[in-house]
Amino acid sequence: MREFAAELATGTGDPGPYAPFPHRVISRTKETADTTTLVLAPIGGGKGARFSPGQFNMLYAFGVGEAAISMSGDPSEEGTLVHTVRAVGNVSTALSRLKPGDVVGVRGPYGKGWPVDQMRGKDVVVMAGGLGLAPLRPVIYELYSHREDYGRVEIIYGSRSPTELLYYDEIQSWRTRTDTRFQVTVDSADRNWYGDVGVVTQRVPDARFDPARTIALMCGPEIMMKLSAQALEARGIAPSDIWLSMERNMKCAIAQCGHCQFGPYFICRDGPVLPYARIRRFLAVREV
């Protein structure tokens, strides 16, 4: 994809940085009632662009439009892209309806991801709320596949209900690992649910980590992240070691449309992953 882009840029008809590159839908998994995971491969083969965990792509549904969607695949796997889409607007609904064989446009990857280099050798706390697990999944792959590079790993995943859990089978297999604690909690459940009921912040007090050498990663609704960051800070983790993946309306992904600003930051360029220390003052204000 990048080679293709370079070739176009030197040609006369360069369609510019907004042009999507066609990809084929290889497979489609329905995660929940409104959430679907797509596996994509560039048309014409090739390895596809490499990405860092936490980055995102602009996905394009032909004739409908574009949406910013996080990378959710294993960053070490070449040749395919994995995206989990919740049908909310017209674009995400069109993307959710794609079937194997269909074509989708991709441009990216964009943004700054999780601080993987800073995490090595340290304890890692991962907190996910709802669809917020999707952008964290690449870093969870990284943690499990290079488990010896990290200290203690605590993963806390909260969802509204058991039926809204993403990557269900994968989580089951991850939870069999004895070198990592993967906790799942839901807001409410019927009596068939044997797991925890509650919110992710309740799991913070007994999470095992050394606050002085811990990196925390989180993604979810803003209020969940705000409260989670406060809970982790109360346990002694420095705000500069707490990283949030932020979301805002996004049109261009290249810091030209102005939509995704959060304080002085373009979420597309300076984020989506930003340290709590830099954004807490803006999280504290309404309607930023």
Partner: peptide, 18 residues
């Protein structure tokens, strides 16, 4: 106009900027 694309047997393709 940022770009134009056409449906094709391969799905769609973006036309060179004209």
């Amino acid at each position: 106009r940022l770009w134009t694309a056409e449906r094709s047997p391969e799905g769609f393709h973006v036309l060179p900027r004209s």
